[in-house]
Nucleic acid binder design. Structure first.
Lengths: 151, 151
DNA sequence: TGATCGGAGATCATTATAGTCTCCGACCAT
DNA sequence: ATGGTCGGAGACTATAATGATCTCCGATCA
């Protein structure tokens, strides 16, 4: 059903929270730790930890160890696209399996497959959609959406 | 990864095939049976059968029983949208679980959820994308098919 | 130096998916 | 009318993906 995973959900929530804390008036620049987010949004602590680790690995947030440690945005909210967030958690986003079959991958249907090309276009459109929306757009409550239906 | 299921893949292939047979020059109006499609595209017969049954149930194709039976498009190719095909197979397409929680459904994160609104907008955009592409659009430019005219 | 933080790996449970098997009823030709 | 060919439908199994948990480690700062 074109569903995104819970982990991706958690990633979005966490990033939104971090961005809000950092860019807000109250405590700008404050680091946010895993526990705080987990409690705020009822997310299993250790699962969220993994999500945040993945985000840190892909360079979207930076981690600070030790007491008073936690996470900070590594980029400005306007530079963090939804596409990048999702890819950090779920790997390259592909609508269909064959879209990323590079080397020895075999698709039983491939030889007579009649839907590969159109599906790749759909996938590309969705990717552009997610690339045109950033974390900043999610903060204001009026996200910017651009549909590019490449027929 | 926003992946669509294999069943949905099969549905698209099958519909594309049926549409091509029906609207093509060779054997216009010919009914297509499950076995023919399964063999052409290397799809497990019984799984494909279920897919086609679902498509028939949702009114995209009409079935004909008995010998010389099979399937026909119930609508013109231009009226069959990708969105409708996917929904026939996978149910209402929702990017996130909470998007369709209607009555008693509870989302642990819901009370403080900060991403619901923007996600719903993304979802809506994707839906529009898939609604603007029809089976007819998928017919252009793909190579195929040689069918043996059965006696 | 010890309590608090993130990093990383293994592990388990649950669910969704893919695929199979079996039986039924409709149809058409002979 | 009857048997072979078709779709309709349900139960069923296997496998993979996901969600979640547990444990141990290293970094850091008071």
């Amino acid at each position: 059903m074109l569903k995104i995973s819970k982990k991706a959900d958690y990633a979005l929530m966490a990033l939104q929270h971090i961005a809000q804390v950092q860019t807000g008036d109250v405590t700008p620049g404050r680091v946010v730790n895993t526990k705080e987010i987990a409690e705020e949004y009822n997310i299993p602590l250790e699962l969220l930890a993994k999500v945040l680790q993945a985000l840190a690995k892909s360079g979207l947030i930076e981690s600070h160890n030790g007491p008073k440690g936690g996470y900070l945005l590594a980029l400005s909210a306007g530079d963090i696209t939804i596409a990048r967030i999702l890819e950090s958690i779920e790997g390259p986003l592909s609508i269909t399996d064959c879209s990323h079959e590079q080397s020895g991958e075999t698709c039983m249907q491939r030889e007579h497959c009649n839907i590969r090309t159109p599906l790749l276009k759909v996938q590309d459109s969705i990717y552009q959609l997610l690339s045109n929306m950033t974390l900043r757009d999610m903060l204001g409550g009026t996200p910017l959406i651009t549909i590019q239906s490449s027929t």
